[in-house]
Amino acid sequence: MLLDAALGEPHWVWSRLPHPAVLMGRVIGWADARFNQGGMRRIKGIGVMLVLGCAALLLGGALQALGPVVEVIVVAILIAQRSLVEHVQAVAQGLRGDLAKGRAAVAMIVSRDTGTMDESAVARAAIESAAENMSDGVVAPLFWYAIAGLPGLLLYKITNTADSMIGYRTPRHEAFGWAAARFDDFLNLIPARGTAFLMALTHGGLRDWRGIVADAGLHRSPNAGWPEAAMARALGIALSGPRAYDGRMQDFPFVNPSARKPLLAQDIDAALRVLWAVWAAVLCLGVILALL
């Protein structure tokens, strides 16, 4: 965690070598092009995830056998605190320049339509992405590493990458990506709730926990609603709500709907402080587990 926070993803390394996440994406992209056609697409998708999962477990075991130095490097590469902070921070910096720069920066981290967003919508999208990716990119990888070492970490990463590429309810991927989406939901059940718990614990204790639980149930995702609801309560703002995908406006309910809705770049700054507080809490837990 300390290596990742200090170094992030050094450009001089990843401009010369493909990042492991990029390699995972290439494999999943190949499988999508090769097998997502014809009949029995759900069965094919299940088979692809079984093969990818077994390969991840075997590769994780082989890497772990190479010793603690390799293990530390792999873990530091596959968690994304510094990268997450930098991408979200770029949105705040862009908004302080002009709205177009903010839209361009947030388009790098969300899949919704950004071309017509106002300042508040850009800030809300960045904060939601920050909350969700704190769980997906930091807490969940570390949780599965703590549970099952490098095999657990690589299994989580390949599943989460597959979900981000093919786990959508679109005509092309609804059947083929079903297994990736469902397995990703399962692997994130505990980390998403743990992230929300740590956000609440580090920002006013657990007095808002009942509200967080209620708000999480309003979200369209079984997991993403938890860190978003906790982030909304920690900052005293409303998140989620209506947004457009592929030119179609979707009327999603707000999370923490009675709170402030107009958001600014300063709210993104506050969200980044929440991320670092949760990071510190996870680091403390890791030290305690190591000592025990």
Rank of each mutant, 00 (worst) to 15 (best):
M1N: 06
S15F: 01
H19P: 10
G25H: 05
V27Q: 11
F35P: 07
G45L: 05
L50C: 07
L58D: 04
G61R: 11
G61E: 01
L63F: 07
Q64R: 08
L66K: 11
E71W: 03
R82T: 09
R82P: 09
L84N: 03
L84K: 07
L95E: 02
R96G: 05
A105L: 05
I109P: 10
E119F: 04
A130T: 09
V139N: 00
P141R: 12
A146L: 06
A148E: 07
L153N: 04
T161L: 08
S164E: 03
Y168S: 01
A175S: 01
F176H: 02
W178A: 11
W178C: 06
A181S: 04
F183Y: 14
D184L: 01
L187V: 12
L189M: 15
L189R: 15
P191M: 06
R193Q: 15
R193D: 13
F197L: 14
G204A: 11
G205H: 09
G205D: 09
L206A: 11
R207P: 05
G211R: 15
L218F: 14
G225T: 14
A229K: 05
A230S: 06
A234H: 09
G236V: 00
L239Y: 02
Q250K: 12
N256F: 08
P257L: 12
S258R: 11
A259M: 07
R260P: 10
A265R: 06
D269P: 08
D269L: 09
A270L: 14
V287P: 12
V287H: 05
A290W: 14
